[in-house]
């Protein structure tokens, strides 16, 4: 079932198609192109094909799928980092290709998987960079910028190492600093590309709660790539399952998360049950996998 209202509309292949049909119908492979240069050869299985989807503000989406299924590519298309070969991404009704990077940065923030950090900026300086889209050339941050940065650093617990150098932090601490930076961008949409991969469970839950709070109170739209199906199930409103560049299923956690779907996507044998402690469906696994079909990464 497709999701309603167009705020961030992504269509690919110029054909209006329901997600259910995407699953059944074989769609011709199309190239993803970054300007003139194709990102992937057309015969490659790892490309994004025919996706129609709306992402709304005030909703938490999780994208799940095996390695190399195109999750990061999908996010790159959504934030305008890559250009689709055909089809359009609409951000608040405007084609994202027609917007400048600065306009996009005021609407969409990204916490990337692993950022290279080669220069010893302090954590505070890095978090302040989140205000870049709002600070004019040659001017200093306003007191509003400073106050917001301070507030976000306190909320995320980054203030404890605010004056330390980002190069000296552990992977998890660095991710938290970059997370704080993205929150400072104060955008209607927030993309998390495996933003929790190096974080301990305490900080993962703390940051997910902050994100959840923003979704409910500020009406922020969050689109997150997860590897942990159970974490995704607890915090998100909508799960999006991807496989080999296609969205195979999409909907509310309690509606679509089941054993058959997870087995189809991940080739494992889970048991899915409602867990009253987690207040959500949860999957448990054991040492049993099913054979993969033709997969795109191995």
């Amino acid at each position: 079932m497709p999701i309603s209202v167009n705020n961030l509309f992504f269509s690919y292949g110029d054909r209006v198609r329901q997600i259910a049909q995407v699953k059944s119908q074989q769609i011709p492979v199309e190239k993803i192109r970054g300007d003139e240069h194709s990102l992937l050869p057309p015969e490659d299985a790892c490309s994004i094909r025919g996706i129609d989807l709306d992402f709304n503000e005030g909703c938490f989406y999780s994208i799940l799928g095996p390695n190399g299924c195109g999750k990061t590519t999908f996010i790159d298309l959504l934030i305008g980092h890559l250009r689709p070969a055909s089809g359009n991404v609409f951000l608040q009704g405007k084609d994202i290709a027609s917007l400048s990077r600065l306009d996009i940065a005021k609407q969409v923030a990204l916490v990337a998987q692993n950022d290279t950090v080669n220069f010893p900026f302090t954590v505070q300086e890095v978090v302040m960079m989140g205000r870049h889209p709002y600070i004019k050339r040659f001017s200093m941050p306003s007191s509003k910028d400073v106050a917001l940065v301070k507030d976000v650093m306190e909320r995320t617990g980054v203030d404890r190492f605010a004056s330390r150098k980002i190069t000296e932090l552990s992977g998890g601490e660095r991710q938290r600093a970059l997370f704080a930076r993205a929150l400072c961008q104060d955008t209607p949409f927030l993309f998390l590309d495996e933003a929790f991969s190096n974080m301990d469970i305490h900080h993962t839950i703390r940051l997910l709660d902050i994100v959840r709070e923003d979704v409910l109170e500020k009406g922020r739209g969050v689109i997150s790539v997860f590897h942990d199906i159970n974490l995704a199930a607890i915090w998100s409103d909508i799960l999006v399952f991807m496989k080999q560049g296609e969205i195979v299923s999409c909907g509310k956690t309690k509606d679509i998360m089941d054993e058959q779907l997870i087995e189809d996507v991940f080739h494992v044998k889970p048991k899915v049950e409602y867990n009253s402690y987690a207040r959500s469906k949860q999957a448990s696994f054991r040492s049993e996998i099913t054979t993969m079909g033709k997969s795109c990464n191995e």
């Binding site: 980092h81 080669n118 900026f121 870049h132 961008q185």
Partner: peptide
């Protein structure tokens, strides 16, 4: 400054 912290994040922070 932003580019020296990586191209993808600089781009998401509004740098062409």
């Amino acid at each position: 400054n932003l580019i020296s912290l990586g191209e993808r994040s600089a781009s998401s922070l509004g740098v062409d």
